[in-house]
């Protein structure tokens, strides 16, 4: 019990030095221990202005404009063409 940091019975000379050592741990420990779980986090500030939000004008580039992929050169398209040829061939037989 007497060795516990908070007992206050440590000699004063040691107390200052051990306090200094303990401080960083004390700062980080409770913060980490009281960190919230996986839910939406609290904002560090309560309110803010438009300047601190994402610029809404950027939104146009956030989503792909077309869902068509016309790049027929990649592997998958080549594979598809192979398959279709096979279908074609089996029909002729």
């Amino acid at each position: 019990m007497s060795a516990a940091p908070q007992s206050g019975s440590a000699p004063t000379t040691n107390a200052t030095s051990s306090d200094k050592n303990a401080d960083p741990a004390k700062d980080t420990k409770p913060a980490a221990a009281l960190e919230e779980d996986d839910e939406f986090e609290d904002f560090p500030v309560e309110n803010w202005t438009q300047d601190d939000t994402e610029v809404p004008g950027d939104n146009t580039h956030l989503w792909e404009e077309s869902w068509d992929d016309d790049d027929t050169s990649e592997d998958f398209s080549a594979q598809l063409k192979e398959e279709l040829k096979k279908v074609e061939a089996s029909k002729k037989r």
């Binding site: 939406f40 560090p44 500030v45 994402e54």
Partner: peptide, 14 residues
Amino acid sequence: WHLCHKDAVRNKEL
């Protein structure tokens, strides 16, 4: 999304 603080990366991710 539009109103979220731009530095709140984790929240924007969510």
